[in-house]
Amino acid sequence: MCIINILPFSFGSCKCADCTSTISSRNDAIISKYYDSVVENTSGKKKLAIIVPFRDRFDELLKFVPHMTKFLNNQQIPHHIFIINQIDRFRFNRASLINVGFLYTKENFDYIAMHDVDLLPLNENLKYDYPIDGPFHIAAPGLHPKYNYPTFIGGILLLKNEHFEMVNGMSNKYWGWGLEDDEFYVRLKDVKLKVYRPQNILTGSSDTFNHIHDRAHRRRDTTKCFNQKEETRKRDTKTGLNTIKYEIKNRNELSIDGIKVTILNVDLKCDKNSTPWCDCSNQESSKPMPRKGLRKKK
């Protein structure tokens, strides 16, 4: 049985990256009191922020929270789940939401998991420990139920805070579904960060994860409009953590089966001069290109 309680918290509005340090300083004591007992009993270990970019996936969230909490508690990983909920009228922007989540949590946590809400790890040998050597891609090619190309780093990726900042976070140009993680792979490669993956995993693509995405019920926004198809196949050297524009409308604490998670309701801002494809509602669209990775801008 799932019991849900919502405890409202409002810190006013946060506009763009400039106000993040102020918000974070207010949160030190507030966030810490929501750690459950496993966090309190693992003093000295690095703290993990699970950052979940989110919109209209409540059914998946009800499964995700108890599953991930049990999975991480079994590994004694100090963690807290942050649901970064996009509430504006623009198309879904997974990368920008992850940037917002990082800026919000970086003062209180040591590393992040960029985590899809519909991908649940099943194999207990998938470790969420602090990625001391470099970015650690848990949903590796050959293990992910759908994607198997060598440069794929989507689904679940662990990064130290300093590594995420080193590459200026993720591109803010990716409105709609797909390619933002391919661009992020090129960012990591450009600064010579090696991506590590799980070793000696005996399960495969059919039984390492439970992929709970229902394509019939939750259709992905694969529309391409304006010059989006061409522009999002290039390495973005202009946008990232230092350019993101957003507003945190409010914060809530959601309790699912007695597990408290933080909900940030986020209003992303779109510069239609640079990314007009944040809204394709009045434009002719084209079919999406297949996912094969990203080319570097010449």
Results as ranks from 00 to 15, higher is better:
residue 138 I to T: 02
residue 91 R to E: 09
residue 107 E to R: 12
residue 132 I to F: 11
residue 179 L to V: 11
residue 99 N to D: 07
residue 154 G to W: 09
residue 101 G to H: 04
residue 77 I to N: 07
residue 160 K to S: 15
residue 66 P to A: 08
residue 170 M to K: 15
residue 127 K to Q: 10
residue 163 H to M: 15
residue 76 Q to S: 13
residue 148 N to V: 08
residue 91 R to C: 04
residue 100 V to M: 03
residue 168 N to F: 03
residue 120 L to Q: 06
residue 93 N to M: 08
residue 174 Y to S: 12
residue 109 F to S: 03
residue 145 P to N: 06
residue 170 M to A: 13
residue 87 I to E: 09
residue 88 D to G: 00
residue 145 P to Y: 05
residue 161 N to C: 11
residue 171 S to M: 07
residue 160 K to N: 13
residue 174 Y to V: 10
residue 104 Y to P: 04
residue 156 I to V: 14
residue 90 F to S: 06
residue 132 I to Q: 09
residue 144 H to V: 05
residue 80 H to R: 13
residue 158 L to R: 05
residue 65 V to Q: 11
residue 81 I to N: 02
residue 145 P to T: 04
residue 64 F to Y: 15
residue 164 F to V: 00
residue 118 D to M: 02
residue 70 K to R: 12
residue 138 I to L: 05
residue 151 T to Y: 09
residue 129 D to Y: 11
residue 178 G to V: 12
residue 175 W to V: 10
residue 166 M to Q: 13
residue 157 L to N: 07
residue 74 N to G: 09
residue 149 Y to D: 07
residue 94 R to C: 12
residue 162 E to R: 15
residue 106 K to N: 11
residue 99 N to W: 05
residue 135 P to F: 01
residue 68 M to E: 10
residue 96 S to H: 04
residue 177 W to V: 10
residue 151 T to P: 04
residue 165 E to W: 00
residue 160 K to Q: 15
residue 181 D to A: 09
residue 124 E to F: 04
residue 119 L to E: 08
residue 134 G to K: 02
residue 175 W to L: 03
residue 145 P to V: 07
residue 165 E to Q: 15
residue 156 I to K: 03
residue 63 K to T: 11
residue 170 M to I: 03
residue 76 Q to I: 03
residue 63 K to N: 13
residue 163 H to D: 15
residue 163 H to A: 14
residue 100 V to E: 01
residue 87 I to M: 08
residue 118 D to H: 00
residue 169 G to P: 12
residue 84 I to T: 06
residue 167 V to W: 05
residue 113 A to T: 04
residue 146 K to N: 12
residue 180 E to Y: 10
residue 97 L to R: 02
residue 95 A to W: 06
residue 78 P to K: 02
residue 153 I to H: 04
residue 156 I to G: 08
residue 157 L to I: 12
residue 142 G to W: 00
residue 134 G to P: 06
residue 161 N to Y: 04
residue 112 I to C: 07
